[in-house]
Design a protein around this nucleic acid. Structure first.
Length: 695
DNA sequence: GAGCACTGC
C-alpha cells in the first residue's frame, strides 16, 4: 500500500473488506497467517481495523504493523486515524525514530521494522501487543528478514496469546506458508490494466534503447507521462540531457519536461515530480529504483523498464562492498509495470525479450540478508538472548552464506562484542543499544573511557549520514590545515562544530553549500546518541588523539597500511587487499611531500572502478599494536557461533574481559562447541536452497 | 583524479 494513494474508493467495498470475517477467524485460529494482497487491496489500512473490530486483539493490548519506510508508517497511521475518526496518537498511532506518537489508548500502532527490532531488545516478549503484522514482506528488507526468524520463535514460546500476520504483494505465498506452516489468503488488487510490450530482440545497449523508446512514445503515442527506470545518478543525468537534445532537434513534436529522480537529489528537485504541470507538456521522469517502491509518481501512463538495477554486494573475504548492475527479478518487473496502472490504464515497455524474462531472470530478488555485511545482525541476535541460539543454524527464511556469518562473528569478536564462547559481552550489549553501525558503536563505548564522547558522537552522527558537503564547499574556511592532515573524520567533526558555533542556522548551510538534509539528520542522531551515552568528561583533546584512539578500537578490522614508496595501501587482515584512498579524500590528507599517512583507518571499502577506501583517518602505529596482533591470530569460528545455553551462564560470562583484553587461544570450560559437521551441514543446506532457488 | 542503488534504529 502506498502512502500517496490518489484515488478515493468506497472503503467498505475494498477487496480485503469483503473477506473481513474470514481473515479475522483465520488470525484468531492460526498462530501465523499469510495474506497476499495485491496493490489496491487495502491490506495495510484495513487489516488492523478488521482485527480490532472483530475483537481478535486482547482488550489491554494493541496490534503492531511494521513498514519498511518511515514515511509509510507515518502517513498510513494518519490515514487510518482519519478513517476511524480519531486523532493520531490516540487509538491509532505510530512510532518511528525521533518520534513516538502513541499513548496508553493506542490499539493500532504503525512502526518501521527497525523500531520493532528496538522494542524487542527492551521487551523480548512484546507484551504490549497481541498481534504483529509484518507488512510488505515481499520486499525482504534485512530488518523484516530478522523479524521473520525472531517472531516465528516468539509465536511458539510466548505464554500469552500472540499472533503473527505476514502480508506480501507477490503471488508467491507458498514460500512464506511453508516456512511458517500457515494458511494463505489471496486478495485481489484494484489497479487499472497495464498492457505489456517486450522487445523482440535483446538491445545492444539498454541506455540507447531507453532513449529511443522515450522518443518513440513521444512522437507516436497518445498523451500521458512517462516513467523510465535507470540505474544511477550519472546515467540518469546523462539520459535527461540526451532526451532534451533529441526533443530540441526534432521538429513538430509537443513540448516535453524531463525530470531526474533519485535519492541523492535535493528535496527541492525531487518535489518537482509532484508539482502540477501543463497538460500540453509531456513529462518524462527518469528515475532509479526509488520510483519502484518509495515514491509514487502521479499520472504515469507509460513505463519503460530496461530490466536492470544497481545492487549492493558484500564480499566477506575482503570486506569489500560493491554496487553492481544486475538483472531485476520477475517480481520487480511486475512491480515496475504496475507503476503504469495506478490512475488509469497504462502501457509498459520492457527492453528485454519475453524469453529473457521467462528463462534468465530470477523469480525474486536475492534478499538483502544474503548480500550485506552481517555484523550488526549477528550482534543483535546474540544480545536478544534467544534460547539455544546458534547463529549458523538459526531459522532464517533464506539463510545467508555461512561465510557471511563467519565473517560477522570474527569481526564481532575482534571488536570485543562477543567473548570466546560466543556470548555477548557487556561491551556488546552496550553496542547494541546504540543506533549505530557496530564499528561506530564500539568507538562510542570506548570514547567513554577516553573522555571524548562529545567528539565521537559528532563523528559517528556525521558518518551515519551519507551527504555532507560538495565541491562548492570551501572547507578551508571551516577546517585548519593541521586538521585536514588527519583525515575525513576530523574534517567532518570540524564542519559540524562550525555549524554548531553558528547556532545551527540554515543560512550557514547554504553559505557553505552543506547538505541541509544530511546536516540536520546528523544533528538529530547526535542528540539521540548524547541522550543514550553519558558524557563522562570533556577533555582538552590535543590533536584529537583520544577521538582517534577510540576510533582505532571501533575500526580494528578496518585498518590499512601504506606501501613503502607510493600512495597505495594494503588492508590489514587475513585477506589483505591492495587499494587506494578515494581521490577527493586523498587530496586533503597528503603532506607537503605529497605522501599520505603511513597508517589509516577507513569507514568504507568499496569497489567501483578500483578498490577505494572512503572516509579515512590518520592513526599512529603504536595505537594499534593489539589490533594487529589480534588480526593475525587464528579464530575458532565454530565456538563463536553458539552462545551460552542458559541465561544464568550467559550473564556470568558477560563480566568476562572483552576480546581485546584476553588471549585468543584461551579456552573457557563448559560451552559446547559447534562442530565442523554443524557448519558443513549448514553450508549444505544453504547450497541446496540456492540450487533450488535457481531451478 | 573519481563518480554510490535504496532503506533504517
Amino acid at each position: 500500500m502506498e502512502s500517496d494513494e490518489t484515488w478515493s474508493l468506497d472503503l467498505s467495498d475494498l477487496p480485503v473488506s469483503r473477506r473481513a470475517n474470514e481473515i479475522a477467524c483465520a488470525v484468531e485460529k492460526n498462530a501465523v497467517t499469510v495474506i497476499i494482497g495485491e496493490t489496491g487491496s487495502g491490506k495495510t489500512t484495513q487489516i488492523p481495523q478488521i482485527l480490532l473490530k472483530a475483537g481478535v486483539i486482547a482488550e489491554d493490548k494493541a496490534v503492531c504493523v511494521t513498514q519498511p519506510r518511515r514515511v509509510a508508517a507515518v502517513s498510513v497511521a494518519k490515514r487510518v486515524a482519519e478513517e476511524m475518526r480519531v486523532r493520531v496518537g490516540e487509538e491509532v498511532g505510530y512510532g518511528v525514530r525521533f518520534e513516538d506518537r502513541t499513548s496508553t489508548a493506542t490499539r493500532i500502532k504503525y512502526v518501521t521494522d527497525g523500531t520493532l527490532l528496538r522494542e524487542l531488545l527492551e521487551d523480548p516478549q512484546l507484551s504490549k501487543y497481541s498481534i504483529v503484522v509484518l507488512d510488505e514482506a515481499h520486499e525482504r528488507s534485512l530488518n523484516t528478514d530478522i523479524l521473520f526468524g525472531v517472531l516465528k520463535k516468539l509465536v511458539t514460546t510466548r505464554a500469552e496469546k500472540f499472533r503473527l500476520v505476514i502480508t506480501s504483494a507477490t503471488l508467491d505465498g507458498e514460500k512464506f506458508s511453508r516456512y511458517f506452516g500457515s494458511p494463505v489468503f489471496t486478495i485481489p488488487g484494484r489497479t487499472y490494466p497495464v498492457q505489456i510490450a517486450h522487445s523482440t530482440h535483446a538491445p545492444r545497449s539498454y541506455f540507447e534503447s531507453a532513449i529511443e523508446t522515450v522518443m518513440d512514445i513521444h512522437l507516436n503515442a497518445g498523451p500521458g507521462d512517462v516513467l523510465c527506470f535507470l540505474t544511477g545518478r550519472d546515467e540518469i543525468e546523462k539520459c535527461c540531457r540526451r532526451i532534451e537534445d533529441a526533443v530540441r532537434t526534432t521538429r513538430q513534436c509537443m513540448d516535453m519536461q524531463v525530470l531526474p529522480l533519485y535519492a541523492s537529489l535535493t528535496p527541492d528537485m525531487q518535489s518537482r515530480v509532484f508539482q502540477p504541470h501543463d497538460a500540453n507538456v509531456r513529462r518524462v521522469i527518469v528515475a532509479t529504483n526509488i520510483a519502484e517502491t518509495s515514491l509514487t509518481v502521479p499520472g504515469i501512463v507509460f513505463v519503460i523498464d530496461p530490466g536492470v538495477v544497481k545492487q549492493i554486494e558484500y564480499d566477506a573475504a575482503t570486506g569489500m562492498e560493491s554496487l553492481q548492475v544486475v538483472q531485476i527479478s520477475k517480481v520487480q518487473a511486475q512491480q515496475r509495470a504496475g507503476r503504469a496502472g495506478r490512475t488509469q490504464a497504462g502501457r509498459c515497455y520492457r527492453l528485454y525479450t519475453k524469453d529473457a524474462l521467462e528463462h534468465d531472470m530470477p523469480k525474486v530478488t536475492r534478499p538483502e540478508i544474503q548480500r550485506t555485511c552481517l555484523v550488526a545482525t549477528i550482534l543483535y541476535l546474540k544480545t536478544l538472548d534467544l534460547k539455544d541460539l546458534d547463529v549458523m543454524t538459526f531459522d532464517f527464511l533464506d539463510a545467508p552464506d555461512p561465510d557471511l556469518i563467519a565473517d560477522a562473528l570474527r569481526q564481532l569478536y575482534l571488536l570485543g562484542g562477543i567473548d570466546d564462547d560466543g556470548n555477548p559481552t557487556r561491551v556488546g550489549r552496550e553496542m547494541s543499544t546504540l543506533p549505530l553501525e557496530p564499528s561506530l558503536a564500539r568507538a562510542m563505548v570506548e570514547a567513554r573511557h577516553f573522555g571524548c564522547v562529545l567528539e565521537t558522537a559528532t563523528v559517528a552522527a556525521m558518518l551515519s549520514v551519507g551527504q555532507h558537503y560538495d565541491e562548492a564547499t570551501s572547507l578551508l574556511e571551516l577546517v585548519s590545515h593541521d586538521d585536514f592532515l588527519m583525515g575525513d573524520h576530523i574534517v567532518l567533526l570540524r564542519v559540524f562544530q562550525a555549524w554548531e558555533r553558528d547556532g545551527y542556522r540554515r543560512s550557514f548551510l547554504k553559505r557553505f553549500s552543506l547538505s541541509e538534509r544530511g546536516m540536520e539528520f546528523a544533528r538529530d542522531i547526535r542528540k539521540q546518541l548524547l541522550g543514550l551515552v553519558e558524557v563522562t568528561r570533556t577533555s582538552h583533546d590535543q590533536g584529537l588523539r583520544m577521538l582517534r584512539r577510540s576510533l582505532c578500537v571501533g575500526f580494528a578490522t578496518k585498518i590499512a597500511h601504506r606501501l613503502p614508496h607510493h600512495n597505495g595501501y594494503r588492508t590489514l587482515g587475513e585477506h589483505s587487499t591492495l587499494c587506494q584512498v578515494y581521490p577527493t579524500m586523498a587530496r586533503q590528507l597528503a603532506d607537503d611531500d605529497g605522501l599520505l599517512p603511513e597508517w589509516i583507518l577507513f569507514h568504507e571499502f568499496v569497489l567501483t572502478s578500483r578498490p577505494y577506501l572512503r572516509y579515512v583517518c590518520k592513526i599512529e602505529s603504536e595505537w594499534i599494536s593489539k589490533q594487529r596482533e589480534m588480526l593475525s591470530k587464528k579464530i575458532d569460528i565454530h565456538r563463536l557461533s553458539r552462545g551460552a545455553l542458559n541465561p544464568s551462564l550467559s550473564s556470568q560470562l558477560n563480566t568476562k574481559p572483552t576480546a581485546t583484553e584476553v588471549d585468543v587461544g584461551l579456552k573457557a570450560p563448559g560451552a559446547r562447541k559447534t562442530t565442523e559437521e554443524d557448519i558443513s551441514a549448514a553450508r549444505e543446506r544453504y547450497l541446496a536452497r540456492k540450487r533450488k532457488a535457481l531451478d
